[in-house]
């Protein structure tokens, strides 16, 4: 994915490096802990962070990051922008929060580094962070990284409640909008709708299995 696409997906401002937006990014990495970036980033990453101090630039240059994206509307000061310009490191800024930023990029096809980390593949000669290997990504059928890992015995059919295909319109999800009611497929009812239906049919509500406040009803707890 090009830096230009990242900028478009995150509606990001370009602080410096406008001439480098055609550069390719291999993976994404989001963290406010710079040591974790040093430990887990693999390949030429886009580094998403909420930190705006000089250590972000140092860390980015140590792991050869292609671009730094400041999330949550954080703005670097002019010194930092000048330093990044001197290093030839593009800096972007988005108002989106960390989770939303990462989610949008992942959905657009920019993978993370989990595949390499879980498969214990470092950049040449780097040893794995942990000596014991946990197999697979629990509950995840979609491994991240250029080299997907074996997710073990977990199968979506057995362990996950899956939404019907077309249940959620991908376009509305990608744009971050609320899903309009008519896009929710038939057969999916809201709690309010179930309540109204029961009331109109004079159906009794099932008694709750717990007492909210035993003292108020005078019953023993």
């Amino acid at each position: 994915m090009q830096i230009r696409e990242i900028q478009a997906i995150l509606a990001a401002e370009v602080f410096t490096g406008a001439d480098k937006l055609d550069l390719e990014v291999e993976a994404g990495f989001g963290s406010d802990l710079m040591s974790d970036v040093l430990a887990f980033a693999r390949g030429r990453v886009a580094l998403l962070t909420g930190l705006t101090n000089t250590h972000v630039l140092h860390t980015a240059s140590m792991v050869d990051a292609a671009v730094v994206v400041f999330v949550r509307g954080k703005r670097p000061d002019q010194n930092l922008i000048d330093a990044a310009a001197g290093m030839g490191l593009p800096l972007l800024g988005t108002r989106l929060l960390m989770y939303d930023s990462c989610g949008r990029l992942f959905q657009a096809g920019l993978k993370g580094c989990s595949g390499e980390v879980l498969a214990e593949r470092g950049t040449d000669g780097e040893k794995p962070v942990r000596s014991t290997k946990e197999k697979g990504i629990p509950g995840d059928k979609k491994p991240a990284g250029k080299n997907p890992v074996d997710t073990g015995a977990i199968s979506g059919e057995e362990n996950c409640v899956q939404a019907a295909s077309g249940a959620i319109d991908p376009e509305s999800v990608a744009s971050g909008e609320r899903i309009p009611l008519d896009k929710i497929p038939r057969g999916w009812k809201s709690a309010g709708a179930i309540g109204r239906e029961r009331a109109s049919n004079n159906e009794a509500f099932p008694a709750p299995a717990w007492k909210v406040n035993p003292a108020a009803t005078g019953e023993p707890a």
Partner: peptide, 8 residues
Amino acid sequence: MGFGAGMG
């Protein structure tokens, strides 16, 4: 500042 996570 982004350090002190015990990863050094």
